[in-house]
């Protein structure tokens, strides 16, 4: 098991958003996290790279093991954790003052990557994110000139550039049109050959299309976790069934 949580509880100002979640995430696979709004799925994701603690009043109990080390353990630097566990957000977040090239190189700069290696890594990351051909002629142009879908792939390239082991994606396609969504989904399937991916989505079709495993959250609890195919055809919990058949949410 590459990444696992043990009795993970996250709170906002003392109120739990997720309670005692224990879950093992398979390497080189896509794990989808689904559930109705407010169920804690985004909070769960943000605990995996120590982003939750940056939220106002955010606290965490329990353990998150990355290759056997508790990322919340004493002496662990959150900054180092985030370099190993990359993240892509709901809305594209290119840095507006940077060019396309600099956006991809942004994480490399804080990681102390030598300048001469940067060009090559930027190209590789953009290629991995299936964006290279579209932007190779304007690498030094503003990242804001790109379309929404391109911006989101740029953010994926930016996250990939630092060679994280895990990629967290928080509803990465919810702000995109269907065509751009499809491209991002294809990209995720390609990327899982090299990365462990955890994706939060409210789109059940998307979860069933791209993921290998699915966890269903409801009211802060992990209700069910299983292989995606099994969960969508034969859920074991009544609440899961109710949700995936569209009876609530």
């Amino acid at each position: 098991m590459h990444l696992a949580t043990e009795r993970l509880t996250a709170r906002y100002h003392g109120r739990p958003a997720i309670t005692e979640v224990s879950l093992g995430i398979r390497p080189r696979a896509i794990t989808a996290v689904i559930g109705p709004s407010g169920c804690g799925k985004s909070t769960f994701l943000r605990c995996l790279n120590r982003m939750h603690e940056l939220s106002d009043g955010g606290t965490v109990e329990g353990r998150v093991l990355l290759d056997g080390t508790d990322i919340y353990g004493a002496g662990v630097d959150a900054v180092q954790v985030r370099r190993r566990v990359g993240m892509v957000f709901q809305r594209p977040t290119p840095f507006p003052t940077m060019s396309i090239y600099d956006n991809v190189a942004a994480g490399l700069r804080v990681n102390g990557v030598a300048r001469r290696r940067m060009g090559e890594i930027v190209e590789r990351s953009l290629a991995q994110a299936a964006l290279w051909d579209e932007v190779k002629d304007r690498l030094h142009g503003s990242a804001l000139a790109l379309s929404g879908g391109q911006q989101q792939r740029l953010c994926i390239a930016r996250a990939l550039a630092t060679e994280p082991e895990v990629l967290l994606m928080d509803e990465p396609a919810s702000a995109l049109d269907p065509l751009a969504t499809q491209r991002v989904e294809e990209l995720m399937v390609t990327l899982k050959q090299a990365y462990t991916i955890v994706v939060v989505t409210h789109n059940l079709q998307q979860a069933s299309r791209v993921s290998d495993y699915t966890g269903f959250f409801y009211l802060g609890d992990l209700v069910e976790f299983d292989q995606t195919a099994r969960m969508f055809t034969n859920p074991s919990d009544g609440r899961t069934e109710a949700y995936i058949t569209g009876r609530f949410g």
């Binding site: 790279n49 940056l54 985030r82 370099r83 993240m87 840095f95 994480g107 996250a159």
Partner: peptide, 28 residues
């Protein structure tokens, strides 16, 4: 926007660098 700050932190930017090279730079 707060999202820019989060994006930088998620890339492994330390807080001070997030503040200076992303947030302040954007507001420059």
């Amino acid at each position: 926007p707060h999202s820019l700050r989060e994006a930088a932190l998620a890339l492994g930017y330390p807080r001070w660098r997030t503040s200076l090279s992303i947030v302040v730079r954007t507001a420059l």
